[in-house]
């Protein structure tokens, strides 16, 4: 079910504060955050976020097309390097195709 329109988009409080400060200062330093579920609103465009993926902070530069998505959509949580090739597997975990 989608979120009630009455509430407006979910924007993490800390992120909102930092974005506001950034806009006021006119700077574009990366904002480190864990708030993957925070919706990207038009104010974010042009800013850089370091979005946590469970391990590292993934660098995400916001463009206009990203508005309406969540920050987490741009920081993948899984790494898949392809299946190992049985024959060459003696070299231990060499990424296949």
């Amino acid at each position: 079910m989608s979120r009630s329109l009455k509430k407006g988009p979910y924007v993490d409080h800390n992120v909102a504060e930092k974005v506001e400060a950034m806009l006021k200062a006119g700077r574009k330093d990366p904002i480190t955050t864990w708030a993957r579920s925070c919706t990207i609103i038009p104010d974010f465009v042009g800013l850089t976020f370091m979005v946590h993926n469970g391990r590292h902070h993934h660098k995400v530069t916001i463009t206009e097309d990203m508005v309406g998505h969540k920050l987490g959509e741009f920081a993948p949580t899984r790494v898949f390097k392809g299946h190992t090739n049985k024959k060459e597997d003696s070299k231990a975990g060499t990424p296949g195709a």
Binding site: T63, D65, M66, H69, G72, E73, F74, P76
Partner: peptide, 12 residues
Amino acid sequence: NRLREISCYRGL
């Protein structure tokens, strides 16, 4: 294509 280009999860 839009989803692909912004490299969001669905695009991937």
